Amino acid sequence: MNKYILSVLLIFISSSSGISYANDFKLKSTDLTNGEIMDKKLEFNGFGCTGENKSPQLSWTGAPHNTKAYAIMAYDPDAPSGSGWWHWQVVNIPVEITSLASGNGKLNDKGIINIVNDFGDTGFGGACPPVGHGIHRYQFTIYALSKKLELPANASGALTGYMVKAHSLASSTIEALYKR
């Protein structure tokens, strides 16, 4: 059998077997829109910011069939820190969970790990760019993981990011904006 026929046959078999591919994995939100300014309720409350510090509503679909857990990361690459700013990192979300309500920024289910954000707290920390610093990008990403992660209790944002990306089967991002 020639390679072309074999390739077509493999594509047909996999597409009819219910296998989900990385480009099928989609993150959605009723609180975030790609390229749009976030609502003040998603602003941090502290460090000079006066928002409600509410995490956004998130939902996702189309994870690869061999997904074992999820991770959510929210990151500001424009923070004037030299390394960006981690606003939220949570790993080992069970595969049965495919949505989070607004304001549910610290998950307490068994096995879930909430990483300390760059504000020094676990769970979600809202947008808080310096006044007059211009528009910042906030990248909210869901990752489908090939396994549950083993992380030390004091895992840094960098270590968590490394482990999540090393075991990611697929990801989807919404990049929202904010300025003060």
Rank of each mutant, 00 (worst) to 15 (best):
A158T: 10
A166H: 05
L151V: 07
I135F: 10
S156H: 10
M163N: 07
A166Y: 00
Y162K: 08
A155W: 10
K148A: 12
L159P: 01
G134M: 04
Y143F: 15
K165E: 11
H167Y: 01
A158Y: 04
Y162F: 04
K148G: 05
K148V: 12
E150N: 08
F140N: 12
T160E: 05
G161I: 08
A155E: 06
A153Q: 14
S156P: 05
S146H: 01
T141A: 09
V164M: 13
A153K: 14
G157A: 11
L159G: 14
M163K: 14
H167C: 00
S156Q: 08
H136W: 05
A155R: 08
Q139N: 11
A144S: 15
Y162G: 03
H167M: 01
S168D: 10
M163Y: 11
K165Y: 01
Y143R: 01
Q139K: 15
K147W: 06
L145M: 02
F140I: 11
G157Q: 13
T141I: 09
S146Y: 01
K165R: 10
I142T: 12
L145E: 08
T141L: 08
N154R: 02
K148I: 09
G134D: 04
N154Q: 10
A144M: 07
F140P: 03
Y162M: 04
R137A: 09
T141G: 05
F140H: 14
F140K: 04
G161S: 09
A158G: 00
I135C: 03
L151H: 10
Q139E: 15
S146I: 00
A155H: 04
K147H: 10
R137C: 05
T141H: 11
G134I: 06
L159D: 13
S168W: 10
R137Y: 13
Y138E: 01
A155Y: 07
S156N: 08
I135R: 15
L151E: 08
K148C: 11
L145D: 07
A166C: 11
A144G: 15
M163D: 05
T141P: 01
M163C: 06
L159F: 07
K147M: 07
A153N: 07
L145Q: 02
V164I: 15
N154I: 13
I135P: 03
H136V: 06
Y138V: 06
A144H: 04
V164Y: 07
G134T: 12
I142A: 13
R137F: 10
S146E: 07
S156W: 10
I142H: 07
H167T: 02
G161L: 03
K165N: 12
L145K: 03
T160G: 12
G157F: 13
G134P: 07
Y143G: 02
L151S: 11
P152E: 09
E150Y: 05
I142N: 09
Y143T: 04
P152N: 05
T160A: 15
G161N: 08
H136D: 09
L149K: 10
